[in-house]
C-alpha cells in the first residue's frame, strides 16, 4: 500500500508525473471526499498542481473572450467582474458549488475534469461554447467542453493530459444557471438548467439551453433552443423551452427524488433559467449572481 505524493514546481514536472501514471490534485474537494466516503480510493501516485502559476488567473483573450486558468477557484470566479457581467451563468454556478469551504479551495479545472453529471459549471461552459486546453508532454490540444465530457466521471482527456485552462469565446446577451435547491447551502444538483441568449432588437437572436443532472452527461436541448430563437421570449416560448427540457431529461429515481418529480422540475428550473437569462439580456441585474448565502451576499431571495 505504498502511495506517493509530489508537489510539482513547474508544468513540465507535472506533465512528466502524469506521463508516468500519477493523477493530479488541486483543491482535492472531490478526490479527498470521494476517498473518505469510499466512493473511489486515492490513486497510488498523486501530483499536486496547486503551485503552478501558469494555471492561475483570468485573462482577456484577443477575441473578446476569457481564458480561465484551471486553478481558478469558484470563489474567484464569483468575484470576477467580467465573469459576472458577460458569463453570468458561470458566476451563478460557481456561487452555489458545495459550501463556502468548497468554493474557496475547489477549482474550475477540478469541477470540469471530475465530470459529474451534476457538476454546476458544466452547463454554463457548454452553453458558452467553452474549450478545454489540454497539455501533455506531446503538446497542446483544444477540445470543446461539450465533447470533453463523455459520461459520468469520464472525459475525452488522456491520462497524461492536464487541463491547464478553459477558454470562453466572446459572449453577448444574458445567461443564467438555475438549480433546484432543497436547502440554501451544501447542495448538489438534482435538477439544473442553463440558458444563454442573445438579442436581436426586441427579439431573441440565438439561444442555448442545457440541462444538468438529468442525463448521464450534461447536454444541450436543441428543441428548447429552437423554441426560443427568433421569438419574442414571452411566456409561450418560455413554456415551450421548459417542456422541451423535460422531454429531453432521462431522469432516474433515487434517494434525492423520483423520476416524475425530476422531470416536472426539469421544466420548472429550465423556465426559471430561461426567464432570468432573457431578463438579464434585456438589462435586468436580477440576482447576479444568485446569492448562495443571503447572510453573506447581502441579499435575500425571499
Amino acid at each position: 500500500m505504498s502511495a506517493t505524493y509530489t508537489a510539482a514546481a513547474t508544468l513540465p514536472e507535472a506533465l512528466a508525473a502524469l506521463a508516468s501514471g500519477a493523477r493530479p490534485v488541486a483543491g482535492g474537494t472531490d478526490l479527498v471526499v470521494g476517498a473518505r466516503q469510499g466512493k473511489a480510493p486515492l490513486p497510488d501516485s498523486l501530483v499536486a498542481i496547486h503551485g503552478l502559476a501558469e494555471l492561475r488567473g483570468i485573462a482577456e483573450t484577443g477575441g473578446g473572450g476569457l481564458r480561465i486558468g484551471a486553478l481558478v477557484s469558484h470563489a474567484d470566479l464569483v468575484a470576477h467582474p467580467a465573469v459576472r457581467e458577460r458569463y453570468t451563468a458561470l458566476a451563478d454556478a460557481s456561487a452555489i458549488v458545495g459550501s463556502h469551504a468548497t468554493r474557496h479551495v475547489g477549482t474550475l479545472g477540478g469541477n470540469v475534469m471530475n465530470a459529474s453529471p451534476a457538476m454546476e459549471t458544466g452547463g454554463p461552459l457548454i452553453c458558452f461554447g467553452a474549450e478545454a486546453v489540454l497539455v501533455s508532454e506531446s503538446g497542446e490540444r483544444r477540445v470543446a467542453v461539450a465533447d470533453l465530457l463523455t459520461g459520468p466521471g469520464r472525459t475525452a482527456a488522456r491520462p497524461d493530459e492536464l487541463l491547464v485552462a478553459i477558454e470562453l469565446p466572446a459572449a453577448a446577451g444574458g445567461s443564467c444557471y438555475a438549480r433546484l435547491e432543497y436547502r440554501r447551502q451544501m447542495e448538489i444538483a438534482v435538477v439544473g438548467a442553463t440558458c444563454a441568449v442573445t438579442l436581436e432588437g426586441a427579439r431573441i437572436g440565438s439561444a442555448r439551453v442545457a440541462i444538468t443532472a438529468l442525463t448521464p452527461r450534461i447536454v444541450r436541448v436543441p428543441d428548447a433552443e429552437s423554441a426560443l430563437a427568433g421569438g419574442d421570449g414571452g411566456a409561450g416560448a418560455v413554456q415551450a423551452a421548459g417542456d422541451a427540457a423535460a422531454a429531453a431529461a432521462q431522469p432516474i429515481s433515487d434517494v434525492r427524488a423520483s423520476a416524475d418529480y425530476r422531470r416536472a422540475m426539469a421544466a420548472v428550473i429550465a423556465r426559471r433559467a430561461v426567464t432570468a437569462a432573457i431578463a438579464r439580456a434585456r438589462g435586468s441585474s436580477d440576482s447576479v449572481p444568485i446569492p448562495a448565502s443571503p447572510a453573506l451576499h447581502g441579499a435575500d431571495r425571499d
Binding site: 440554501r184 447551502q185 448538489i188
Partner: peptide, 15 residues
C-alpha cells in the same frame, strides 16, 4: 439508503 450528510439533509446556518 442515505446514511451520509449529503443526502441526510440537516438544516444549515443559512436555512
Amino acid at each position: 439508503l442515505n446514511p451520509y450528510l449529503l443526502d441526510y439533509k440537516l438544516q444549515t446556518a443559512a436555512d
